[in-house]
């Protein structure tokens, strides 16, 4: 194995053009175009500004979380509690609503609860040195459990008119507030991960945490910040979802964590850490939106859609591996 790779070290690296053409992101673009074309052929209702606008709601909320989750996974950690954070944040917003809180307070509570939950995960993982997958399975039950304790089988309703803007409002024409927020967040996260020294430390930690620590990276602090960021984005998503649905139940956003992680992995982020890009995650979010919306137009039930999402996840990861194997064999 090692001798093989040694023999194949190229004289020079691929040109920027070549590596861009054969990149994961290019594959995702092609997949997205293919699904877009299939959707337009399969349904007469698809190619329409309002349809396409509705489509974006399928991925904006999960996509916002996926941006932060991507950085967390690149750093070699994971957060399975994001959907539970949404449930807890939404429930506490509902409680504040009962106490007649105004819209800015509601938003502050939603975002603040998300941040605190993320910090709680961060403390458990970095201060106590626990494996994040188990910690967040625990907090996943804990956060949603608290929401169930507060709400039981009840629901909070009657959010103020001004609160509805975040999940239902449009900035102009068919461009929703959620979409704008997602695009702005994507830009911010792209800059943070790919253009700042903080972003470089995230990659360094994911590739080799010990080497990163010896290089002067404060590994635990960076990880803590990433958990806080993931919590914060979950809090923002909680505000959007609560505003869009106009009600809170403890079962809100159930199963979102798996879809968010699917987005991240589909976006080319290595689940073992150390590699990935924000562009890939954004494209993966769009692809997931296209698939679920297209199948929805064809009256495919949600549970059958999940088969496609699951297959998409496995096939997209398996295909390059098989492809490389075949190329190696023929070489």
């Amino acid at each position: 194995m090692t001798t093989d790779t040694a023999r194949h070290i190229p004289d020079r690296l691929d040109s920027p053009f070549r590596s861009a053409v054969f990149s994961w992101e290019m594959l995702l673009v092609l997949v997205a175009i293919a699904i877009f074309v299939i959707n337009s052929i399969a349904s007469p209702y698809f190619l329409n500004a309002w349809s396409l606008s509705d489509l974006t709601f399928n991925f904006t909320e999960k996509g916002l979380i996926a941006l932060a989750m991507a950085m967390l996974i690149i750093a070699g950690e994971i957060d399975l509690s994001v959907a539970a954070i949404i449930a807890l944040a939404s429930t506490l917003m509902g409680m504040a609503l009962q106490a007649e809180a105004d819209t800015p307070t509601l938003v502050l509570i939603g975002v603040g609860v998300g941040l605190l939950c993320g910090a709680f995960n961060g403390v458990l993982v970095t201060r106590l040195g626990l494996p994040s997958i188990v910690v967040t399975i625990g907090t996943m039950s804990l956060f949603r459990g608290v929401a169930y304790i507060i709400l039981g089988d009840q629901a909070y309703k009657g959010y103020p008119e001004s609160f509805a803007f975040f999940g239902q409002g449009y900035v102009g024409w068919v461009i929703s507030f959620e979409l704008v927020l997602f695009l702005v967040a994507a830009l911010v996260f792209w800059f943070l991960l790919h253009r700042t020294s903080f972003g470089r430390t995230v990659f360094a930690i994911g590739n080799n945490p010990i080497a990163a620590a010896f290089s002067g990276v404060r590994v635990e602090r960076v990880k803590f910040i990433l958990f806080c960021l993931t919590g914060l984005m979950s809090g923002i998503a909680a505000v959007l979802i609560t505003s869009r649905l106009g009600s809170t139940r403890p079962s809100i956003a159930q199963g979102y964590e798996l879809e968010v992680i699917t987005m991240v992995v589909l976006g080319g982020v290595n689940i073992l850490g150390g590699a990935g890009s924000i562009l890939g995650v954004v494209l993966a979010a769009v692809i997931m939106g296209l698939v679920t919306f297209g199948l929805g137009l064809m009256n495919v039930p949600g549970i059958v859609m999940s088969i496609f999402i699951g297959l998409l996840l496995i096939v997209v990861i398996a295909l390059p591996i098989i492809w490389n194997r075949l190329r190696e064999r023929s070489a």
């Binding site: 625990g138 907090t139 804990l142 459990g145 304790i149 039981g152």
Partner: peptide, 11 residues
């Protein structure tokens, strides 16, 4: 409704 939170804490 307490069960979920309690098992989460136990984990």
């Amino acid at each position: 409704f307490w069960q979920l939170a309690i098992s989460g804490s136990a984990i």
